[in-house]
Structures are given as structure tokens and as C-alpha cells.
Design a protein around this nucleic acid. Structure first.
Lengths: 117, 117
DNA sequence: CAATATTGTTTCGGTACCGTATCATTTACG
DNA sequence: CGTAAATGATACGGTACCGAAACAATATTG
């Protein structure tokens, strides 16, 4: 289950994947935005602004603004928690799932191409 | 030599690594800056502003500004090409090497921890 | 109930980045 | 030579993000 790669391989993988993200047509998310997006999609819900801010050790406005930006891109959506109306529950979207699916495929493909000189 | 991982593993690796970069004390570089930095360190020199701009398909000011920022951080340095004084040669630094060494170690470590639940 | 706490958003001033256009310097060429 | 081309840097107006503080809405508590 665990992946064994050298630091050099890791760096080359990071390089190629970052290059692809930059060259890609898709709008470039910041490192923070990517971290937020992946947390929403890979970790167990529910996700709140406060929870994400704590997890990433950033201020709440950072989360609010990232959700604004990524909401415009359709990558996430927000809904009021009906049980506690102070809370906002962050939800996944079809578009976001698709975005991350492509990202995962791209990175795995870059890994596969490592060392093929 | 080639690494075989699933898209899901790639995504989790990306997630954990991005989380570490955000939580890290080191100043957060943008995705573009990281792409530029890794190109300088992993691809064959010489590196020029124009060459990097072409490779990443961005305008030259983007490169100039990224080099300014990363230069202040000590991650790269610049030197005039004495053969053709229009050119600026971008050079690696000890600090930059160290930065990327740590980055590679961190990503490899995250890979190693994949699936350890 | 009133006072306090919690949650997410907005505002504020500031910084950093973007793309386009322009500039200064250097080289190539007619 | 003198003009054109190439290279990198800078100016400019605009956009997006940052942290701190203030805010509105809701929930908790005494």
C-alpha cells in the first residue's frame, strides 16, 4: 500500500506535475486553495470554515475567500447547517470531483513516465 | 525506474504534500514559482528569462518577477552572460538546493506514509 | 430573558502578482 | 556605420490575496 520513491523521483514528479498545472488551460489555484480543495474532497465531512481554518492553520477569512473563488469556478458549494445556523457546510460538486479526478490521473501519469528518458 | 501509482494514491500524495507546504514555516511559493524553481534545478542549464518564459508559456515579466522574489529568498541568483550581455543566466544557490532537497525528502516521506491507516 | 460566546462574512490598508506596453542595453545585419 | 532585432527590466492599471479588526446572525448560558 505504501509507495516507495526516492527524494529525487519525488522532486521530478513534483516538477512535471507542476509544469502540467501551469501549462494546463484550467485556472491555476494557489497552493492554499489546492490544499483546501483536497481536504474537502479527501477527508471525512462535514467541513466548516472554522474546521478548515484550524486544520490549515490559517485565518477564517482565508477560507471564506478561497471558497468564494472556488465557488465561482464551481469546484465547491456552501450550504447553511440547518441544525446550527451559524455553521456553513462546505459541499462537494460534480465539477470539483471531475477536476480532482483529472488531477489525480495527470499526476499518476507523470509518475508512470518517470525515468523514461 | 517508472513509478506505478493509482490516481487515488497520487491525489492523496498531492494532498498531504500540499498540506505540509502550507503548514510549513517556509514561505509559500506560488505554483508558477515552484515550476520555475524546479525547472532551474532539474533541467540542463543554461537558463535564461526568455527560455523559461517559453517553456512555461508565460510572459517574460512573470519570470523576471519570480526571479526577483526568489532571489530575495536566496533560492536563485542572476548573472549577466559575458558572451552575450543581453542575456541573464539564472544560477542555482546553495540555499535553493537545500530548499529543494527538503521538499523532495518531504514528498518522498509522504509517499512512504501513504495507506498507513 | 439578557449577556456572552461562536461562527462566518465583510471591511480595511497593504502587498504581490498579472498582462500589456514600453524602455534600455546589447547584438546582428544590410 | 546605422538600423533592426533580441533580451531583460520596468511602468502601469487592474485583480487577488493577506492579516487584523469589526460585523451580523445565531446559539449558549447564567
Amino acid at each position: 500500500m505504501s509507495i516507495n520513491i526516492t527524494a529525487g523521483q519525488a522532486l521530478r514528479l513534483w516538477h512535471q506535475s507542476n509544469l502540467h498545472m501551469v501549462l494546463d488551460d484550467a485556472p491555476d489555484l494557489s497552493v492554499r486553495q489546492i490544499a483546501i480543495l483536497l481536504t474537502i474532497y479527501l477527508e471525512t465531512p462535514p467541513h466548516t470554515v472554522r474546521g478548515l481554518a484550524q486544520k490549515l492553520n490559517v485565518s477564517k477569512p482565508v477560507i471564506t475567500r478561497a471558497l468564494d473563488s472556488m465557488g465561482i469556478l464551481g469546484l465547491v458549494s456552501r450550504r447553511r447547517d440547518e441544525n446550527d445556523k451559524r455553521n456553513v457546510l462546505i459541499q462537494r460538486t460534480v465539477e470539483g470531483s471531475l477536476y480532482l479526478e483529472k488531477l489525480g490521473d495527470m499526476i499518476a501519469e507523470q509518475a508512470r513516465q518517470q525515468g523514461e528518458i
